[in-house]
Amino acid sequence: MPHTPDAYRYTRQYHGPLQAVIFDWAGTLVDFGSFAPTQVLIDAFAGFGIDITLAEARVPMGLAKWDHIHALGRLTAVEARWRTRFGRGMSREDVDALYAAFMPLQIERVGEYSDPIPGAQAVLDGLRERHIRIGSCSGYPRVVMDRLLPHAAAQGVHVDHAVAADDLRPGGRPGPWMALANVIELGVTELAACVKVDDTVPGIAEGLSAGMWTVGLSLSGNEVGLTRAELAALDTDDRERRRLFAVDRLSRAGAHYVIDSIADLPVILDAIEVRLARGERP
Rank of each mutant, 00 (worst) to 15 (best):
P2E: 13
H3N: 06
P5Q: 12
D6G: 06
A7M: 12
Y10W: 14
H15V: 05
H15L: 12
V21L: 14
D24F: 00
W25Q: 01
A26R: 05
L29V: 01
V30G: 01
V30P: 00
G33P: 00
F35N: 04
A36V: 07
A36G: 02
T38K: 15
T38P: 05
T38Q: 15
V40N: 03
L41D: 08
I42G: 07
I42S: 10
I42E: 13
G47Q: 08
G47A: 06
I50V: 04
I50L: 03
T53R: 13
T53A: 14
A57G: 11
P60F: 03
M61V: 03
M61T: 03
K65L: 11
W66I: 00
H68Y: 15
A71G: 11
L72M: 08
R74D: 06
L75H: 02
A77G: 05
A80Y: 14
R81P: 00
R81C: 06
W82P: 08
R83K: 12
R83H: 12
R83V: 06
T84S: 15
R85K: 11
G87V: 05
G89D: 13
R92M: 11
R92C: 05
D96E: 12
A100H: 13
A100F: 10
E108K: 11
P116C: 14
I117K: 00
A120Q: 03
R130S: 07
C137F: 08
G139S: 15
G139R: 14
D146S: 09
R147W: 10
L148E: 09
L149M: 13
P150S: 09
A153M: 13
A154F: 10
G156K: 03
V163D: 03
A165H: 07
D167H: 11
D167T: 08
R169Q: 07
G172S: 06
G175N: 05
P176M: 08
M178Q: 12
L180G: 07
V183Y: 12
V183K: 03
L186R: 03
V188E: 04
A192W: 02
A192Q: 10
C194Y: 05
V197K: 00
D199I: 01
D199Y: 01
P202N: 05
P202G: 02
E206N: 05
G207H: 03
A210R: 04
A210L: 11
A210I: 15
M212L: 08
W213A: 07
V215G: 02
L219Q: 03
G221M: 00
N222E: 15
E223W: 02
L226H: 04
L226G: 04
T227I: 03
T227Y: 04
R228K: 08
L231G: 06
A232C: 07
D237A: 09
D238M: 08
E240N: 04
R242W: 07
R242D: 02
L250C: 06
S251I: 11
S251L: 13
R252L: 14
A253L: 02
G254F: 06
A255D: 03
A255K: 09
H256P: 13
H256C: 08
Y257E: 05
V258D: 01
I259W: 11
I259G: 01
I259L: 10
D260F: 10
S261Y: 05
V267C: 13
V267Y: 12
I268S: 09
I268C: 12
I272Y: 02
I272W: 01
E273R: 05
E273V: 14
A277E: 08
A277V: 13
R278F: 11
R278E: 12
G279F: 11
E280P: 01
E280C: 09
E280A: 09
